[in-house]
Simulated assay, not measured.
Amino acid sequence: MAIKQNTARSVNGEVTVEEFKEWLKRFDMDKDGRISREELRRAIRSIHKHFSGWKSSRGIQYADTDGDGFIGDNEIVNLVEFAQKVLGLQIVPY
């Protein structure tokens, strides 16, 4: 997934885990280093996936291992797995 360099910033093709993380950081609106449900919803919506509200809720449930309602750096691997399984994104290690 290539991350397009335009303002829409969509994820298509193949990306590395690091590229995915950098793309996701663009949606961290409060710059706290964590991804909230709303921020994840915006990211999902930006790649034109349907049911972004439902999918963002599921993504938080799937990836949030400490139960704080946010995806932190240590939980991003879980979110990568969710993005591959549920969103159909092609994310490679390097």
Rank of each mutant, 00 (worst) to 15 (best):
M1P: 12
I3Q: 09
K4S: 13
T7E: 15
A8G: 05
A8V: 13
A8P: 06
R9P: 02
S10K: 09
V11M: 02
N12V: 13
G13S: 03
E14D: 12
V15A: 14
T16K: 13
T16Q: 06
T16R: 09
V17M: 04
E18I: 02
E18S: 09
E18A: 11
F20E: 06
K21C: 02
E22A: 14
W23L: 07
L24Q: 04
L24E: 04
K25V: 05
F27V: 05
M29C: 07
D30T: 04
K31W: 01
D32I: 01
D32K: 12
G33T: 13
R34F: 10
I35L: 13
S36F: 10
R37G: 14
E39I: 02
L40D: 06
L40H: 06
L40C: 05
R42L: 11
A43G: 11
I44V: 06
I44P: 01
R45M: 09
S46T: 12
I47W: 12
K49W: 08
K49H: 11
H50Q: 15
F51V: 00
F51Q: 12
S52E: 13
S52T: 01
S52A: 15
G53A: 07
G53F: 08
G53Y: 07
W54P: 00
W54F: 13
W54Q: 06
W54L: 14
K55C: 00
S56M: 00
S56L: 03
R58H: 04
G59Y: 01
I60S: 01
I60M: 06
Q61I: 10
Y62N: 02
Y62A: 11
A63L: 06
A63D: 04
D64M: 06
D64V: 05
T65D: 13
T65S: 13
G67W: 08
G67R: 08
G67A: 08
D68F: 08
D68H: 10
G69V: 12
G69E: 13
G69C: 09
I71G: 07
I71S: 00
I71M: 04
D73P: 09
I76N: 02
N78R: 10
L79N: 00
E81P: 00
F82G: 01
F82H: 00
A83H: 00
Q84C: 10
Q84D: 02
K85T: 02
K85A: 04
K85W: 02
K85H: 03
V86T: 10
V86H: 04
L87W: 07
L87A: 03
G88K: 09
L89M: 15
Q90N: 15
Q90D: 13
I91V: 14
I91G: 08
V92F: 09
P93G: 09
P93E: 15
P93H: 10
Y94A: 14
Y94F: 10
Y94K: 15
